[in-house]
């Protein structure tokens, strides 16, 4: 009843406002006003990528001669240069290894802890809040110097395993927090029923909890991989040789060492860094968005 009234009033109101702007010019203006922010968003998001892609297909000379976005003589020389650069290849391998290591370690460590926090009543439960707040209390800028000194003291500098361990440490709180929320949504009754049927804790975890939590696990693995793939300041202080450097550090090194900037190669490097991740991301975007927004306070 009331909704019908409102609907009627709404169409009335729409007619009313439409009456104010009858001329086609005003209509066009109104449309433009709604479209403009979207266009702006598109420009804002994509132009930096487009510029980098455009430069990556130019030659070194053309970057200075042709300022337009479309390369006159598109060449893949920059990509060849980067793809045959041993620094890029080893950094790519390191990023992949560290990324995979962090994703696996974060899930392996985070999953049981989240299950304990979500399902058990025990003395450590009040730690959960502190646990989730800790990464905010301790940004990476706060651990940069201490971690470096500890790594030097324990002879763990310049090792991939140190990177994996440190990244996992920074990510486990987020992982636990995401998973606790997820586990709490799984009805206890399912597990209790399985318990009656004789399934022990491992069976329940393996056959009930993990399959149901798969979206959360995927989200966490992706976020963990992203962090390892992109993180820059910790890898900068924790590694000293190309043998352990990840992609961001290698790209940074490249920008530092060139006399005259080799823009096409830098751009190609950046594109090659971004590309694999975007390809992975587009397949699982909805999980990641859901995972990111579910926690950020509705």
């Amino acid at each position: 009843m009331t909704t019908e009234l409102i609907d009627a009033a709404k169409t009335e109101g729409v007619r009313h406002t439409a009456g104010q702007s009858r001329s086609p010019m005003a209509k066009l203006g109104k449309r433009l006003l709604t479209a403009l922010p979207l266009i702006l968003l598109g420009i804002w998001t994509f132009v930096p990528f487009i510029v980098a892609i455009s430069v990556s297909f130019k030659s070194k000379i053309e970057t200075f001669a042709n300022l337009g976005l479309r390369p006159q003589d598109p060449s893949i020389a920059a990509y060849q240069e980067v793809l045959t650069d041993p620094n890029f290849l080893s950094a790519f391998a390191n990023s992949a290894i560290v990324g995979a290591g962090v994703a696996v370690l974060t899930v392996i460590i985070g999953l049981p802890a989240a299950y304990a926090f979500a399902r058990f009543k025990f003395r450590g439960r009040h730690l959960l809040l502190l646990f989730t707040l800790l990464p905010r209390l301790v940004p990476s800028i706060g651990i940069l110097v201490p971690i470096y000194r500890l790594a030097v003291a324990t002879n763990m500098l310049d090792r991939r395993i140190s990177l994996i361990f440190v990244y996992a440490g920074t990510l486990v709180p987020l992982a636990v927090w995401l998973m606790v929320g997820f586990f709490q949504q799984i009805p206890r009754e399912i597990e209790e029923a399985a318990d009656v049927d004789g399934a022990n804790l491992w069976a329940r975890l393996r056959y009930i909890v993990m399959p149901l939590a798969a979206p959360a696990l995927i989200t966490i693995a992706v976020l963990a991989f992203r962090e390892a793939w992109n993180e820059f300041t910790l890898v900068l202080v924790l590694t000293t040789t190309p043998a352990t450097r990840t992609l961001p550090f290698a790209l940074f090194k490249m920008g530092q060492s060139e006399g005259i900037s080799n823009f096409p190669a830098e751009a190609a490097f950046a594109v090659l860094t971004v590309l694999p991740f975007i390809l992975v991301y587009t397949r699982i975007e909805r999980y990641v968005v859901a995972g990111l927004t579910s926690g950020s306070g509705k």
Binding site: P48, P248, F277
Partner: peptide, 17 residues
């Protein structure tokens, strides 16, 4: 989905761009 793109790249790649 596309607006998330800047979130997916490293600070260094953003700086290059």
């Amino acid at each position: 989905a596309a607006t998330l793109a800047p979130y997916l790249i490293s600070n260094v790649a953003a700086a290059v761009m």
